[in-house]
Simulated scan of single mutants.
Amino acid sequence: MRYIIIGAGAVGGAIGGRLAESGNDVVLVARGAHYRALREGGLRLVTPQGARTHHLPVADRPGAVDLRADDVLVLAVKTQDSVAALDAWAPRPVAGTGATAGEVLPLVCAQNGVEGERLALRRFRRVYGMCVWLPALFLEPGVVAADCAPLTGILHIGLFPSGTDETAHRISRDLEKAPFEAPVVADVMRWKYAKLLSNLGNSIQAVCGSAGSAEHAELVARVVAEGRAVLAAAGIETAGDREQQDARGHKADTQPLEGHPRRGGSSWQSLSRGTGTIEADYLNGEMVLLGRLHGVPTPVNATLQRVADTFARERRGAGSMPVGELVALVDANAAQ
Rank of each mutant, 00 (worst) to 15 (best):
L175K: 07
A214G: 12
C131S: 12
M189F: 11
V184M: 13
A221K: 15
A178F: 11
K195Q: 03
L200F: 01
A217W: 09
A221G: 14
K177F: 07
P135N: 07
K195Y: 01
V207D: 02
H169C: 13
A136W: 01
R123G: 03
V144E: 04
R173T: 09
G163C: 10
S203W: 01
F124C: 08
E140G: 07
L159E: 13
W191F: 14
V188K: 01
L134Y: 07
S213T: 07
A120Y: 01
R122H: 13
P161R: 13
A186G: 08
L139W: 08
V220F: 10
Q205M: 10
S203F: 01
D147V: 15
F138L: 09
S172L: 03
T167L: 12
V127L: 14
E176L: 08
K177P: 06
S203P: 05
A149P: 06
N202K: 02
L151D: 05
D165C: 15
L196T: 02
F124V: 09
D187W: 10
G209K: 10
R122W: 10
G209M: 07
P161L: 14
Y193R: 02
C148V: 14
I204H: 07
A194N: 07
A217T: 09
A194M: 05
P183R: 04
P161D: 13
E176M: 13
P141F: 12
C208M: 06
S198F: 09
D174E: 14
D174V: 09
R222V: 06
A217L: 10
A229Q: 11
V144I: 08
R118C: 01
L151A: 11
V185I: 11
R122G: 12
G212S: 09
P179H: 15
W191H: 13
E176I: 12
A149H: 04
A206F: 06
G158D: 07
P150K: 00
V207A: 07
G201R: 03
I157C: 00
G153A: 13
D147G: 15
C131P: 00
I157S: 00
L121M: 14
A182Q: 06
E140Y: 06
V127E: 08
V127G: 12
P141A: 14
L159W: 07
I204P: 04
R222Y: 06
F124K: 05
A217M: 10
T152C: 15
L119A: 09
G201S: 11
Q205R: 11
Y128C: 11
C131N: 06
D165R: 13
L175E: 02
A211C: 08
Y128W: 11
R228A: 05
A186Q: 08
F124M: 08
S162V: 13
A214I: 14
V143T: 11
V220H: 11
V207C: 08
A214N: 09
D147R: 15
S210K: 15
R222G: 02
M189E: 12
M189L: 14
R125W: 07
G158H: 05
G227S: 00
S213K: 06
L200R: 05
G227R: 00
C148M: 13
R126F: 08
E176K: 12
K195C: 03
